[in-house]
């Protein structure tokens, strides 16, 4: 770990000002990922701007939905009555992530900003285009069991590790960020990026911008919701594949549906084609299976993750079946 200075700020304005002044500064929220990255030498900020005292942790109902402050802890969101009532998928996804201790520290904004868990990214003795652009992708041709089947490039095959983000993608959340040029809104699906030729860029947040909130619009999907995470142990493991599924079912037909996957791409992977196809179809396993195979159209194995080509559609079907079966 490099030597760094540390400061606390108590307002959005002072946070943004602190980062504007210092190019080597970074925001520190829960620190559950950033501190690891610093310890392994992947990230070496010269100044940490601790934003935990900025009042951005409220969860409130608005006219159109729920607004969740960027500094709300993962546990607080997962246990929040409004979240559980309106967006059980988000609560389930959060609880599927990490461990209770980590969720108590981790924030919503930090969760969005967490970086891939690809081992080659963390081990500075190995090549990684994300950590060290141009050094090559160590994972390609190596240990690829955890890696992407969608949207990978020849520069990077890493996946985004978040469960929460899978739910927020499915729920059409909108992120509000603020920065030196003022506030702007980013639809959740446009926040994270595919690796392309610039895998070092995880997302479209501009340097110096601060995430302040996430808005989730109300929907009619709470009754039939399931987050299914398949992993190597029952808790505290990253997803091999996860699926967030939510449906509105009327008279056995799917009036509305949202589907997103985790553990399969550099960003939370929304299955819009499958959603569109399922709309107004009956909620049967056969239809779920068709939708799942549609979702897999562009999937590509890296070798070690070939099993995901089977696991992913199966998990989509299981998640939809479980969601549909809910009373």
């Amino acid at each position: 770990m490099n030597q760094f200075s540390y400061m606390r700020v108590t307002s959005k304005e002072s946070a943004i000002a602190a980062l504007a002044k210092d190019k080597a500064a970074m925001f520190l929220a829960g620190g559950t990922n950033l501190v690891d990255l610093m310890k392994s030498g992947v990230t070496s900020p010269e100044r940490l701007v601790d934003i935990n005292n900025v009042p951005l942790a409220t969860i409130e109902e608005t006219k159109t939905g729920l607004r969740i402050g960027a500094l709300a802890k993962n546990t607080a969101v997962a246990e929040n009555a409004l979240v559980i009532k309106h967006f059980p998928l988000l609560s389930q996804a959060l609880k599927a992530g990490a461990s209770p201790q980590l969720r108590n520290m981790a924030t919503v904004g930090g969760n969005m900003m967490q970086r891939t868990r690809c081992h080659y990214f963390y081990d500075s003795a190995l090549p990684c285009n994300k950590r060290s652009p141009g050094s090559g992708c160590g994972a390609i041709g190596g240990f690829t069991r955890m890696h992407a089947i969608f949207g990978a490039s020849d520069k990077c095959i890493a996946v985004h590790p978040s469960d929460m983000c899978v739910a927020l993608t499915a729920l059409d959340a909108v992120i509000t960020v603020t920065g030196p040029k003022g506030e702007r809104k980013i639809p959740f699906g446009d926040f994270h990026r595919l690796p392309g030729d610039t895998p070092e860029q995880d997302n479209n947040l501009q340097r110096g911008e601060l995430i302040i909130a996430v808005d989730i619009p109300f929907n009619q999907l709470a009754a039939h919701t399931h987050y299914l995470k398949v992993r190597d142990r029952a808790s505290y493991a990253f997803a091999l594949v996860s699926v967030g599924a939510a449906m509105q079912i009327r008279g056995g037909n799917i009036a509305d549906v949202r589907l997103a996957m985790g553990g399969v791409a550099h960003k939370p992977w929304r299955l819009k084609e499958a959603e569109a196809w399922l709309k107004e179809k009956s909620a049967t396993e056969e239809n779920f299976r068709k939708a799942a195979s549609m979702a897999m159209a562009n999937a590509k194995s890296q070798g070690g993750n070939a099993f995901k080509l089977t696991l992913a559609p199966n998990t989509i079907v299981e998640a939809l079946k479980t969601a549909a079966a809910q009373a």
Binding site: R117, H119, Y120, L126, G142, R233, A234, S235, A237
Partner: peptide
């Protein structure tokens, strides 16, 4: 069910040398 130390033989180096990626059973297992 869970434990496996994985080496990338191209480098002769472990690629899961931490407790997040080397899975010892947790209580839920």
């Amino acid at each position: 069910l869970t434990e496996e130390g994985i080496i990338d033989h191209r480098f002769g180096r472990f690629v899961n040398n931490n407790l997040a990626d080397y899975h010892v059973p947790v209580s839920a297992d």
